[in-house]
Amino acid sequence: MAKLTEIRWHGRAGQGIVTASELLAEAALKDDKYFQAFPEYGPERMGAPIKAYTRISDEPIELHCHILNPEVVVVVNPNLLGVVDVTEGLAEDGVLIVNTSETPQQIRARLGLKNNKKVFTVDATRIALETIKRDIPATLMLGAIIRATGLVSLDKTLHLVQEKLGAKLRAEVVENNLKALRRAYEEVKEG
């Protein structure tokens, strides 16, 4: 990975992608890296397509503009494919990570992506339903991102989630969230 990595998140308002984009930034803090996370606020309503961004770097980040050419795109809601051009501006050798039950090959074919772009898929919705019993897949996408990019450390991220959720939630719920994140890390597929 280059010194500065720019990540764009696609989801629907109310799904927690802003929280997820910030959590990734906090994971970078635990890794002694520099970071920014910011949402793209518009006149959004629950369910409207929205974007959020994360920058991670080994050096201080002074840029304060939008991200037009991300190295990594994360699609939290698969029904955005075909609604929003999720690969717009994605770097030539960029990484696309999609929450879907489809295979990376199917996604690649659907979006007409060339081989130099890497495609990862993970069925984060199913993992979320099986572990935390709720359809909130945004934060566990972190597991897939870590596996696909190595941007931050898995252990430190798990520790961070434990620390943050542990302050508010029952131990069992915290453990389920950690399990979900770990499973997303393990079950992500490249193709």
Partner: peptide, 12 residues
């Protein structure tokens, strides 16, 4: 501070 750009952006 700048609205959204700073106000809503998470930084160190």
């Amino acid at each position: 501070q700048d609205g959204f750009i700073t106000g809503h952006a998470v930084e160190l």
